[in-house]
Design a protein around this nucleic acid. Structure first.
Length: 279
DNA sequence: CGCATATCCTGACTGC
DNA sequence: TGCAGTCAGGATATGC
């Protein structure tokens, strides 16, 4: 659910709130959030470190530390990273799996009901500052752009449907279900088309649509759905949901042609589109 | 290799 | 009102 625009909004919040701060205490009550190392090891590697940079690659948050390691955080479906002001110490809400105290008296909390989210500390960082655990992640459309040629070479000969390819993080990093549907709508292409069937012009439209949808969504601080699960660091909702043209709008009129938006099933997953103006 | 499917998990919602 | 069933969809493991 948190996709590139939501994660970028959290990253910007982290940049303002925690960069330059030192970690003084780490508690990991959750059993599932830290999986690649022990909870004790994660805590040991964080305490005493200063946060030097807040980065992002696709849907992964990257907090660089002053010993050249990187704290990697992925929100997955329901993860929330919250920053509590100094002195503000309410009892942790349910499903709070990690608590990090900072030297300015503020605190970071990770809340994640479905426990799919993940934290780990990596020591193996490549020349771009990306942990080797994320080496398989593809191009980030905001950081590195999304040229038509990349889509053309990645989609050529592929039978898999466009939505599956757009959400394949090895090709393009950061697009999930919401933005895949919105990007396909803007590009006027059905999400159930096979990747290999797209024309050169359609690949161009898709690349342009991806850039403009993602940029607009970042400007609106991401999308908070009906469950209001996605919130930024301060707990505020995004507003891009008000601009969704098709996602979760089955039965409502297409804003472009007026025909009813439909929900397709691609595998076991939903895809929303307008069959009137997407082909 | 490509592609589809199952899996992890909780909470919101639906229908009886 | 309660309760079973369904859906949500991130990434990864598996089966073919």
């Amino acid at each position: 659910m948190p996709e590139l625009p939501e994660v970028e909004t959290v990253r910007r919040g982290l940049e303002a709130a925690v960069v330059g701060k030192q970690i003084t205490k780490v508690q990991v009550p959750g059993r599932r959030t830290v999986r690649r190392q022990s909870r004790e090891e994660l805590a040991r590697r964080l305490v005493g470190r200063r946060i030097t940079m807040a980065g992002r690659r696709g849907k992964f948050l990257l907090l660089s530390l002053d010993d050249d390691s990187v704290l990697v955080v992925h929100l997955r479906m329901t993860g929330q990273l919250l920053h509590l002001a100094g002195g503000e110490r309410p009892a942790p809400e349910a499903h709070t799996h990690v608590l990090v105290d900072l030297d300015d008296g503020t605190e970071l909390r990770f809340v994640d009901p479905r426990t799919f989210g993940e934290w780990f500390v990596s020591n193996d960082i490549d020349a771009r500052g990306v942990p080797i655990e994320l080496a398989h992640i593809g191009r980030d459309p905001l950081l590195e752009g999304l040229p038509k040629a990349l889509l053309a070479s990645s989609f050529a000969g592929r039978r898999a449907c466009l939505k599956a390819l757009l959400t394949d993080q090895r090709i393009v990093a950061g697009i999930g279900s919401i933005y895949a549907d919105e990007i396909c709508f803007r590009a006027k292409i059905r999400p159930d088309r096979s990747g290999g069937s797209l024309s050169d012009a359609e690949l161009g439209s898709l690349a342009r649509a991806a850039r403009s949808v993602l940029r607009a969504a970042v400007a609106s601080r991401g999308s908070s759905l009906r469950d209001q699960r996605y919130r930024d660091l301060a707990g505020s909702l995004g507003s891009y949901q008000g601009r969704h043209c098709v996602y979760d709008r089955a039965g409502e009129p297409c804003p472009r042609c007026g025909r009813s938006v439909v929900r397709l099933m691609i595998g076991a997953r939903s895809a929303y589109c307008c069959v009137g103006c997407q082909s």
